Amino acid sequence: MKVVGITGRSGCGKSSATNFLRERGYPCIDADLVAREVLLPGSPCIAKLQAVFGADIADENGQVRRRLLADRAFATPEGTAALTAITQPEILRRIDAALAEAERGGAKLAFVDGAVIVGTPFEQRCDALILVTAPYDTSVARICARDGIVPEMARRRLDAQTPLETLRAAATAELVNDAAPEVLRQKLQSIVQRLEKEEYA
């Protein structure tokens, strides 16, 4: 089974691409959702995080106070590294389990959708990497519409993300999402057909 990563910066339309693939019956794993799940009550990560960032980062019901955790973790480079060291192995374990299940089900292609793939250990697991891009101003407008924020905040969010040049250097294929949804689907279908023929080895 070939593992294909789908990545892109905020507002590029990555979710639209993944939804199309899911509708076509391909296994699609949302890495960003998995990253949120590892902070849900019962996760083995929570006790480890409490040991580093304080017991009060979770309430009496085991619910993580995400803003408090973020404030402490991202205050220093060491804190950010500690957060990653605790959560990343569990995220990767869950993604690997979902991929193994897809392979047992007979899938020839499985897609993993994640904003942060490039530069993480999971990048090495990808047989191919599709980068979804959109013009900068288009992405800003989409972020504003989706999250109800002003353009300045949307631009700040975009500018803090991994540079496009870095993502392009890692990508097997780039999918420019600057037209109607139907055009995106056609472009994606073309890439998937090439993946199935193993043109992106």
Score class of each variant (00 low, 15 high):
E78N: 03
T76K: 04
L40N: 14
R156W: 01
P151E: 05
T138Y: 02
R125Y: 05
S43L: 12
R185Q: 14
L40P: 00
I130G: 02
G54V: 13
V176F: 02
A98K: 10
A201S: 13
A70P: 02
P181M: 04
P27A: 13
D113E: 15
P77S: 12
A82M: 09
D59A: 11
F74Y: 11
A98D: 01
T84L: 05
E165W: 04
V38E: 09
L195S: 05
E101F: 01
Y26I: 07
A35S: 15
G79M: 04
M153W: 01
M1L: 13
T133E: 15
Y136L: 10
F111Y: 07
R157D: 00
D159C: 06
V118R: 12
G114M: 11
R194E: 12
I191N: 06
D59T: 11
V4C: 09
A51H: 12
P77W: 10
I130K: 08
R24V: 01
A51I: 08
T166W: 03
I29F: 11
F20N: 08
L158P: 02
E60G: 07
F122W: 15
T84F: 08
A58Y: 10
F74H: 03
L21W: 09
Q124P: 07
R168P: 00
A102G: 07
Q186E: 15
G25Q: 11
F20R: 15
E152D: 13
A35Q: 08
R67I: 00
M1E: 06
P77N: 11
R125H: 14
P181T: 03
K187R: 15
A98I: 00
N177E: 05
A98H: 01
